[in-house]
Write a protein that binds this DNA or RNA. Sequence first.
DNA 1: AAACCGGGGTG
DNA 2: CACCCAGGTTT
Length: 356
Amino acid sequence: MTINIDKKQFQQDLISWFLAEKRDLPWRRTADPYQIWISEIMLQQTRVDTVIPYYKRFVEKFPTLQALAEADEQILLKEWEGLGYYSRARNLQAGVKEVAENYGGIVPDNRKEFSALKGVGPYTAGAVLSIAYGIPEHAVDGNVMRVLSRILLIEEDIAKPKTRKIFEEAVTEIISHDDPSSFNQGLMELGALICTPTSPKCLLCPVREHCSAFDEGKQQDLPVKTKAKKNKAMQYAMIAVKEGDCVLMEQRPSTGLLANMWQFPMVELAKEALPLEIEEELSENFSGVVDGVEKITSFKHVFSHLTWNVDGYIAKGENLILPAHMKWVTAAELELLPIAGPVQKMKTALQLRGDV
DNA sequence: AAACCGGGGTG
DNA sequence: CACCCAGGTTT
């Protein structure tokens, strides 16, 4: 990788712009490595505007590393509810527990130790080390790859895992050692505000004079990125089984999609099913009596890699023998269980009917 | 290297 | 509606 920019001038132009134009974000008001760590985990695959309210609630609820280390997982997941990628929350807590136990509660200040923690990959390690500790480590995310692909005219496919190394080497070469934090944040802020995926605002760009893509009119063609395969559709019945004031809930397995989250019992269907068939299917699962099955709603939930087509039913249960991952809850208890998007849609439909 | 893991925004 | 965005872990 040959880098033909004036490094010192580039650093100064980028950092000056960042210091003048940076957004006032909650995690930019703390120097606490623990809180900066939380922000970087939340910001993975998630937009700034979405993260802000979650971050504020989260640091209020778990203000110290020790508080998070000791938190109950269900409380933790409830705080994360709606943010998605729930394994981030569980991995963060695992990492925090390691720091509490093995590092006396002090977040490690070197890449080797920090990136060995659960949920901390190359990007997060570099981001926290540079922002919290001022260490000149690369922090290459999608924004940085887009920005640098244009400035340095790098035409490798950024969807390929090995391409990230090219960008890490480039950042290592050009990062400011006087202010690594503003340099890394400046690259990402530039990607968010100016050097956007479509229609980059080159006329407002503080480093336009350093940009090879702009020079050659290729900014719209970069970065090169092959696109992902399309997703797969699944058909489910989701059933709110009621007995008295209680409704039946089940916890998902501890691995895989929506791990450890709660839901109304679900059954996968080969195709759309009739209420009577749902009744038979359920009775087999519960070794008890389920009847009065009635369809109340129908909705779709799209994940990145698959789509759930869900038919929502209510039913009455009687003397059911429950497997270990199921329990009866009252309306108040239901509010405390962490649930993901599709289950929230079902819950809302039930609440509109006055069923829960 | 490829597959798995959510949710929200834009055009 | 179709399409875009994106870091870490597991296989």
